[in-house]
Design a protein around this nucleic acid. Structure first.
Length: 676
DNA sequence: GCAAGGTC
């Protein structure tokens, strides 16, 4: 008897490729906007999901944030909300037609749960359906054929490990999010969020800002010298000026070369792109969020491979040389030739090797006019990176000299590119050359100039988006698919802004409050512990229910100990500080954005009615208070975000300018402008 | 209107 068969993949792209490998005669069917694939000969369907098509939620009765006691969230029965109705209906319909289903979602923890979620839907329609699981680590003919020839069983423990993560994340996230939002009065679209990944990330940014605020620069002194055709540095730094001056005064008019070394060094080429490395480089052009959006587009249109990957080692199944050759007929002809001119072509590789997806590489040739500006930037980056991983190494001539100037030591370093190799292809990091001529030991050289400079130690740097993503990865926070979204979330909550990021006053108070009442949620350890417990659930050493109950108990105990009035006042303090635009020039109280009776906004003094100081504001667009403070008026500069963002600058300066313009007659205005 | 994780 021929059985009719349904294969469930994690996404459409995987579904289509599986269909094309297993079924020569497959054709594409449509259900709304969803593609799926059918082989008549085998009476088989392949459907791609969109990751999780259902999500956990609380029942309707608990939707109201103000009316629901937090404890009720902990003991709620979760409901499963369908996110992808079309796919849900499609697989339900197919469940009636088939008698066997093979779960072929990604071979990882979330993939197992995504498969089980689909399976539950199928079984609710067709309880007798036969089930098996195909596990593959790359969508190649060999891997897929092998996986489907020898299917295994669904690993329900592995799926439960992912499920317990969902439950814990939702309960902790929702309870603490509601707690701080309700008690700070930040409701509706302005709510303040808390989560296992976002909060530790925010804490890192806040604590870095504290370090910067507490930083006291220290003076130190550096001595350098200029010789005939190069510069050199005295290796020691001095804390006291007299000490530095004493050394400085000893420097003679001539130096004697103590030794000179020279060697050629091969500089390793860049490693294949995984998501983190890709976002790091793309951040030279756009935000990680935007870069992922563009990469997603390029992937969906066949230009690059799957952009969500941890892997930095090319699998053997990819025809690297074939791809490189294909670029001979492209805008990257020159670069491809550099790669192909080598006797032996070897690909670089990184330390992280995972079997989920290959590193990001180009899968089709595009020309400039095929793509929009942002798309081309990302495509070019991926192509150049790919070719660079196959290119020759760069070779540098490294020189070093030590020079004695009447007992004062100087070091000079020089570097020059002998052969650019991959650097000719991968143009995103500049190779800086430093001049140093060939010297001989014992050689006497004339000193042209000597310098004693006072310098100051610098505070630690704020985090850029790419530095933050890298740090999150090192701390085990988030995944390749979520890190950029978490960062965007922090921005949209008003917790962080700018580039590099600095936290708002609200962020300071949220972190301070949470450190006191629920420190667990502010630390990466929570994720580490959860990972360990998920492993135990997956291995069958612990029950999912037990892990969830333990976690709930911990949260319950946290919630029972909170002093809500203390918490509320600290949160409100922070929120208030964010609203302060500056100091009133007339009475010194705070200036804030206020609204008049006829709903017009303006800047006003908080000591009104004692003080009547006001400044006008534009009535259109969103007001963004920047961190920049006007030196003259001690008022923060303002940006207006409408369709475009424009800089208003200091509202007081702006007002004075405007008034000046009002007082000028058109004639005198003309005169003054003709002078300029 | 909550999280984080998939995917679009």
């Amino acid at each position: 008897m021929v059985m009719s068969w349904l294969i469930i993949a994690e996404k459409d792209d995987a579904a289509r490729r599986i269909a094309s490998i297993l079924f020569k005669d497959f054709r594409t069917l449509k259900e709304g906007k969803i593609n799926y694939y059918y082989s008549e000969k085998n009476d088989s369907y392949v459907v791609g999901l969109k990751g999780h098509i259902v999500e956990l939620d609380f029942p309707k009765e608990l939707k109201n944030w103000l009316k629901t006691p937090l404890n009720e969230l902990l003991n709620a029965e979760f409901v499963k909300k369908v996110k992808e109705k079309t796919i849900y209906n499609l697989i339900k319909k197919l469940a009636e037609k088939v008698d066997r289903v093979t779960i072929a979602t990604d071979y990882d923890r979330e993939g197992e749960l995504i498969g089980v979620e689909a399976l539950e839907i199928l079984k609710s329609t067709n309880p007798n359906i036969k089930v098996d699981r195909a596990r593959y680590s790359a969508i190649t003919k060999e891997e897929i054929t092998k996986a489907f020839a020898k299917t295994t069983n669904v690993d329900f423990n592995l799926a439960k490990a992912a499920l317990v993560r969902q439950k814990i994340d939702l309960v902790w996230g929702a309870a603490l999010t509601r707690m701080i939002s309700v008690h700070s009065g930040r409701l509706g679209k302005d709510f303040l969020s808390v989560g296992r990944v976002q909060t530790p990330t925010l804490r890192i940014i806040v604590e870095r800002e504290e370090e910067i605020r507490n930083f006291r620069p220290e003076k130190y002194y550096e001595i350098s010298a200029k010789f005939e055709s190069f510069e050199a540095k005295h290796p020691k730094k001095y804390k006291e000026r007299p000490e530095a001056e004493k050394v400085f005064s000893n420097i003679g008019d001539f130096g004697v070369v103590k030794f000179f070394t020279r060697k050629s060094i091969e500089e390793a080429k860049p490693i294949p792109f995984n998501t983190t490395e890709f976002l790091r480089e793309a951040s030279k052009f756009m935000s990680p969020y935007k870069a992922m959006q563009v990469a997603e587009f390029l992937y969906m249109n066949g230009y690059i491979s799957y952009p969500r990957t941890d892997n930095t080692v090319y699998p053997k199944s990819i025809d690297l040389l074939g791809i490189a050759r294909s670029f001979l007929n492209s805008p990257f002809e020159k670069e491809a030739k550099i790669v192909l001119s080598q006797e032996k072509i070897e690909a670089s590789s990184g330390k992280k090797e995972s079997k989920d997806h290959p590193p990001i590489y180009p899968t089709a040739i595009a020309t400039r006019k095929d793509l929009k500006d942002d798309e081309w930037i990302i495509y070019e980056l991926v192509v150049r990176r790919f070719l660079a991983t196959l290119a020759p190494r760069a070779v540098w001539d490294i020189r070093r000299a030590e020079i004695d100037c009447n007992g004062v030591n100087f070091i000079a370093n020089g570097r020059k590119i002998i052969s650019a190799g991959w650097r000719e292809i991968y143009i995103y990091s500049k190779a800086e050359e430093v001049e140093l001529p060939i010297l001989k030991a014992g050689q006497k050289i004339r000193l042209i100039e000597k310098k004693l400079e006072e310098k100051k130690t610098k505070p630690p740097a704020r985090f850029s988006a790419s530095a933050l993503i890298k740090l999150m990865e090192n701390l085990g926070l988030g995944t390749k698919s979520t890190r950029h979204e978490i960062i965007k979330k922090l921005v949209s909550r008003g917790y962080i802004s700018g580039n590099p990021f600095s936290p708002s006053e609200t962020a300071f108070s949220v972190i301070s409050v949470l450190k006191k009442v629920a420190e667990t949620i502010t630390l990466p350890d929570m994720t580490a512990k959860l990972e360990k417990e998920m492993d135990e659930v997956a291995e069958g050493k612990k029950k999912e229910e037990e892990v969830f109950e333990d976690s709930k108990k911990m949260l319950e105990s946290i919630l029972s100990k909170i002093d809500y009035s203390q918490l509320a006042s600290e949160l409100k303090d922070g929120i208030k500080r964010d609203k302060v635009v500056g100091k009133c020039p007339e009475c010194g109280a705070d200036i804030v954005v206020r609204k008049s009776k006829n709903k017009k906004r303006f800047l006003g003094c908080t000591s009104y009615p004692k003080c009547n100081f006001t400044l006008p504001l534009p009535q259109k667009g969103t007001i963004v208070l920047t961190k920049k403070v006007c030196q003259k008026h001690a008022i923060r500069e303002i940006k207006i975000k409408d369709k475009k963002t424009w800089n208003l600058g200091c509202p007081y300066c702006n007002y004075i300018e405007w008034k000046k313009a009002q007082n000028c007659s058109p004639e005198s205005k003309l005169n003054s402008s003709s002078k300029a």
